[in-house]
Simulated scan of single mutants.
Amino acid sequence: MAITAGTSDGDRAAELEMLLPATCLFHSLSDPSRLVILQHLQLGEHRVVDLTEHLGLSQSTVSKHLARLKDAGLVESRPQGRASVYSLLHGEAITELLAAAERLLGLTGDTVALCPVHGKRAAAESN
């Protein structure tokens, strides 16, 4: 997945194209509510109403987040009566990814949080 120096425009475009799935994956993880949903689903299956109560968000908002995670192949759902029950797909890999992110955050300290483009202040201004 690495971009190499000294490549032609066509090669660079191909390399960037190869990175598109990773870009989409990280974009699906870029919302704090979706990360909380993933952490909550690490505990086991949950209905939308359970996640709504835990997050304090509307049902439609939680459903949209779940749809995004489902589109990314991170969660799955199954019908249970009139409700849908959500669970993690690839739970072990998601746990490893979140643990790796925690390790990286430990190494970078406040650098990410203080970043003027993606840090806390930027996130607050975009809301």
Rank of each mutant, 00 (worst) to 15 (best):
47 R>H: 05
47 R>T: 00
47 R>S: 04
49 V>G: 00
50 D>A: 10
50 D>Y: 07
50 D>P: 06
50 D>Q: 09
52 T>L: 00
53 E>F: 13
53 E>M: 14
53 E>H: 15
54 H>R: 15
54 H>K: 15
55 L>D: 14
55 L>M: 13
55 L>G: 11
57 L>V: 07
57 L>E: 12
58 S>D: 12
58 S>I: 01
58 S>Q: 11
59 Q>E: 05
59 Q>P: 03
61 T>C: 10
61 T>D: 12
62 V>L: 03
62 V>E: 08
62 V>W: 00
63 S>Q: 08
64 K>A: 14
65 H>M: 02
65 H>V: 00
66 L>I: 08
66 L>F: 03
66 L>N: 06
68 R>Q: 01
70 K>R: 13
70 K>S: 11
71 D>H: 01
73 G>R: 05
74 L>E: 10
75 V>H: 07
76 E>Q: 12
78 R>N: 14
78 R>Y: 14
78 R>V: 08
80 Q>C: 15
81 G>A: 09
82 R>D: 14
83 A>T: 09
86 Y>H: 15
88 L>I: 04
88 L>P: 01
88 L>V: 02
89 L>V: 10
91 G>Y: 01
93 A>N: 08
95 T>Q: 08
97 L>M: 07
98 L>N: 04
99 A>G: 05
100 A>I: 07
101 A>P: 04
103 R>Q: 12
103 R>N: 09
105 L>N: 03
106 G>D: 03
107 L>I: 03
108 T>I: 01
108 T>F: 01
108 T>L: 07
108 T>R: 06
109 G>L: 07
109 G>C: 08
